[in-house]
Amino acid sequence: MNKPGEFYQRDREWHPPAYTKDYKTSVARSPQYSLISLQNSVSEITGPVFGHNDVDPLDADLIYNYAQPGESAIGERIILHGRVLDENGRPVPNTLVEMWQANAGGRYRHKKDTYLAPIDPNFGGCGRTITDQDGYYYFRTVKPGAYPWRNWVNSWRPAHIHMSIFGSGFAQRLITQCYFEGDPLIPKCPIVNTIPDPNAIEQLVAALDMNSTIPLDTIAYKFDIILRGRRSTLFENRLEGN
């Protein structure tokens, strides 16, 4: 039995740092002291377990999951799909993937969003699903619109979908944002640019996937998600064992 062990160290130079002054809200919300490094204990290796009973299949279909009977959301119909893998390339099965987004006009269904673009009465804006045995997930939704935000005088977020993923241990917990291939707002965005490495930014851009479209129905984008890999216990005579 190959017992999975601790997670690989997170590459903090690949992720955005806490303090990123062009994204103004980070200035007062970034710790000044260094993080204290912890080797994983049982508290980090374990994490919540979800099952198919926790979600409804309709939860993954944002075109219909908040629509009135006979209605559907307005916008560019897309399938967003991909695999959740770890850094070793192994699929992460049975893990909860949650997402949320604005509607086709860039308006969020949230009592704090006052943007003048209208709410779509048939669009809620959130979805969730559990990956299958091979780590696959898929959602059906409408492509979100860009929207303005108060950072600089004239700041616009690129079209994006927020993604939340659990993995098999609490140390794998991740929230990120999925962008869309070819969007000219991506390189202008101070939130995108909190990430220092251009190759890391590319990892957040979903690719147009013509092979997965449904002709005359729905276009498709592919977005794979990579979670931290884990050491295998190659030797039993470790200096410190759990």
Binding site: H15, P16, Y23, L85, E87, S164, T176, L227
Partner: peptide
Amino acid sequence: YLKETPSQTAGPYV
């Protein structure tokens, strides 16, 4: 090895 998907803020509408 693959690289971990980089994090982004959860934003105000989490």
